[in-house]
Amino acid sequence: MGSPRGNRHQPGCQVGDLGPEHSDKSAVSIHDLTVAYDRKPVIWDIDVDIPSGHLVAIVGPNGAGKSTLLKAAVDLVPTSSGQVRIFGSPYAQTRDSVAYVPQRESVDWDFPVTSLDVACMGLYRSIGWLRPVNRAHRKRGIEALDRLGIADLADRQISRLSGGQQQRVFLARALAQDAQLYLMDEPFAAVDAATEEAIVRLLQELRSQGRTLVVVHHDIQTVRKYFDWVLLLNMRIVSSGPTDEVFTSENLSKTYGGRLTLLDDAAEAVARGDR
């Protein structure tokens, strides 16, 4: 694991104003972010700074708001308050340097496209409106598939892929986007060992190129092995920082054991009160 560089985020410190001196160091700065579904808050007052060039895990129990945090970062869910800055600017201005990988279950895998079609979708933004996908684009799509070891499956319809292969296709699409920041929602969920290995290798390769990767991760066993930065989340930030410092049993029991029931109840009350 490479040692963490850049400005260290002290757990609990205030982000304060997001001035320009901030921008070249943090990939994602989240300030005072609260997100609610149907008026029921899911994440509260998130204040966190993710420095660039790290492989970051977001860890927390079910319902902790991990996916919501990623979605809020890419404007997929409306926020109640707060702001997210990516490389110092609002997402609308930096979206071309961000690749978001949704959960595998979020799409219909019986859809009539091939692996290569999906990988090429990562290029659509750079291709632009109305222009068709040409041979050069397909070549880049195959290269992306190849980096995940599935170039031989390029012409296969996506429903005939295994779960792990489908996940790799999703990552190939993100890879084709050639982004600086990757936000991945559970890329390791229900994949085979070979796929997990291929994904980890890719993530570490991307990090060594100076890119930032933020990964929602479920398997506590492998956090230390794979990630150099951790964000512990349970409706609010429990702690965040370099894995060595933050990923302690004390913090973990705060994240998993110490579910704040009052926070749950208050969220319910807010939802009820607004009806």
């Binding site: 404007d75 609308a92 690749a99 978001y100 949704p102 979020s106 659509y124 933004r125 986007q177």
Partner: peptide, 8 residues
């Protein structure tokens, strides 16, 4: 949602 996230 991927399309929306990447700015379409």
């Amino acid at each position: 949602s991927f399309a929306r996230g990447s700015g379409w």
